[in-house]
Design a protein around this nucleic acid. Structure first.
Lengths: 143, 143
DNA sequence: ACCGAATTTGAAATGATTACAAATATTGGC
DNA sequence: GCCAATATTTGTAATCATTTCAAATTCGGT
């Protein structure tokens, strides 16, 4: 991935770029695994040995505030992050813990910014839990 | 609320009733505030002075496993619980932190038990974030 | 190069949740 | 009703993600 793409993405969201912010954003733009803070920290640590976990926390919070990333609270143990901020739904596999992207229902996409029973909506989240295709196949093998 | 209603609800979900389980279930059936573990513990503590926080945790986990309650992971700080297990959406106010019930979109209700791109869906969650009616009115007053 | 502001860092604190083992309550067989 | 096996509850201690905070570093402007 070109450095410029990452750089421009930050600027577009009114985020002043820094080495650390570029690194985190690049990770989000390359990996659609809905990483946790720790996944990001562990992945970047070798390349940026002075990187601090706190910086990853700060950076992601900043990204979310500027609309450059999405925070997912599907897994009750840990917050995850998504660099894809276009409207889409998620699927959490109860067996392997992976989170997959799914299309969001059209009706839900249009709710942002509207009025729902007098309440102003700023975010919409839609997610499913269950067993994913891969795990289903694996389970069929062994049973 | 009649004790029997609570009792029967536990039996219906294959949960062996106990004093503590009845107390927690009664609280969930009376209060639709989507309480946290601590809210429930604090509310029941005066009436059941020997009640332990751990028991509230255990009990709620048991309820969720048996489909007698729903776990909400909307607020990233804390898990909340809902005694209403019929399909409905939620609205979290970013200002006051309250969670409101809203109708779930029809299209989403029918997804449970179905197959989505090869994945089996067991739970559907839909929620909104924004500013609630009450807070909007309050804000208008002061501004 | 220098200064003030913004950013990063790491250590310590916080707080929700879990693990666990001891205490208590419940159940079924006699 | 009594005893033993089982299930449940309890409280403390541990865990672990996240936040706080103050010192260190970096950055931007002059």
């Amino acid at each position: 991935m070109k450095v410029n793409v990452v750089y421009e993405n930050l600027l577009k969201c009114d985020i002043k770029p820094s080495v650390q912010r570029m690194a985190v954003m690049e990770y989000l733009m390359k990996h659609f695994t809905h990483p946790s803070v720790d996944e990001i920290y562990t992945a970047l640590s070798p390349k940026y040995p002075t990187l601090s976990r706190t910086t990853v926390y700060n950076t992601l919070k900043l990204f979310v505030k500027h609309g450059a990333a999405q925070m997912l609270t599907i897994d009750e143990k840990m917050t995850c992050f998504d660099g894809d901020v276009t409207p889409h739904a998620h699927f959490l596999c109860k067996e392997c813990g992976k989170i997959y992207d799914l299309p969001m229902m059209d009706a839900a996409k249009n709710v942002v910014g509207t009025d729902m029973a007098g309440n102003v909506v700023t975010d919409v989240h839609q997610y499913y839990k269950g067993i994913c295709k891969q795990c289903l196949e694996k389970d069929n093998m062994t049973n």
